[in-house]
């Protein structure tokens, strides 16, 4: 990363994210890429807390806190207002967690991107409703423990593939990014900034608290998610053109699962099953990218 990008920060310390929070790192990277001419729309999510209690703010850019289900529609409105003011320079960003994207904010998101409204929607995905106390969402992966999928009732449904859903809307740009790959992340955020229309970034953000992992391996876990093909790094342009950005070393998924408390109950048989699912998804992605 070049020195100028390393140097510029649009976040303040003293925010109240948990130690090792991936979402805090993701916000730092995103703003490094986008710069100060950015408006953040934040629905109910961890970041509503992280940004600080009133009257504090953890960001040097404006934030609009909005209702849980309204990130995309608020972004549409802010964009329209800026356009009326003749401000085409400012980037409007909806910054929502997986709950506000996959579940509660889903219809607003689908509606806004169907209209191809001109904003960047970033979902920072920590795979459950974390700030309310770790409840499962439709982003929670198969096999995970949460407060609402406890004990033997661990989640038996697969994680919703949000990237495919967004790609199916044929919007100009959908991509995945990870906090463990800052250069790739920042390149995608910059690319997204320059594109007109609806853009969607799906960002993998570790949650040490909710995943029952030590905070210091936050980045390592994120890297392993990519290297096991659980969270591949790729882009979809216009809903059709797939590019895989990183060919991983293909570690076994069990190495990733064994490091996390939320998967501790899984047996070897379960892990074999998960490995099959991951392999299958990866093959499907490869064939979409014309590499299958």
């Amino acid at each position: 990363m070049d020195a100028e990008l390393m140097q510029r920060e649009f976040m303040y310390p003293g925010h109240v994210a948990c130690p090792g929070c991936g979402a805090a790192i993701a916000m730092r990277f995103l703003l490094k890429a986008l710069g100060e001419k950015t408006v953040m729309i934040i629905p109910a999510c961890c970041w509503s807390i992280i940004a600080g209690p009133y009257p504090q703010s953890a960001l040097k850019t404006p934030i609009i806190h909005c209702a849980f289900e309204t990130a995309a529609s608020t972004a549409s409105g802010v964009r329209a207002a800026l356009d009326m003011l003749g401000d085409t320079e400012t980037t409007v960003v909806a910054w929502a967690g997986d709950g506000g994207t996959f579940d509660i904010g889903f219809q607003a998101l689908s509606g806004a991107v169907e209209r191809n409204d001109n904003f960047l929607y970033v979902c920072y995905d920590n795979e459950a409703y974390m700030n309310t106390g770790i409840q499962r969402s439709s982003s929670t992966p198969y096999g995970a423990w949460t407060m609402t999928t406890p004990g033997r009732d661990w989640k038996k449904m697969r994680k919703k593939n949000i990237v495919e859903i967004l790609a199916a809307h044929r919007i100009p740009y959908v991509a995945t990014a990870s906090i463990a790959y800052p250069d790739d992340f920042i390149r995608k955020a910059k690319k997204a900034k320059e594109i007109k229309g609806s853009r969607f970034l799906h960002v993998y953000t570790t949650c040490p608290t909710g995943w029952r992992i030590p905070s210091e391996i936050s980045i390592k876990i994120a890297r392993m998610a990519v290297q096991t093909n659980i969270f591949p790094l790729y882009e979809v342009e216009d809903g059709t053109r797939y590019t895989i950005n990183y060919r991983p070393r293909e570690y076994l998924v069990r190495e990733y699962f064994r490091m996390q408390g939320r998967f501790r109950h899984l047996t070897d048989k379960d892990l074999d099953q998960i490995q099959k699912m991951v392999d299958e998804d990866w093959q499907r992605l490869l064939s979409k990218a014309g590499q299958g």
Binding site: G14, H15, V16, G52, S57, A58
Partner: peptide, 8 residues
């Protein structure tokens, strides 16, 4: 908001 989180 009119102050930063730096006070924390």
């Amino acid at each position: 908001s009119w102050i930063t989180t730096e006070g924390n």
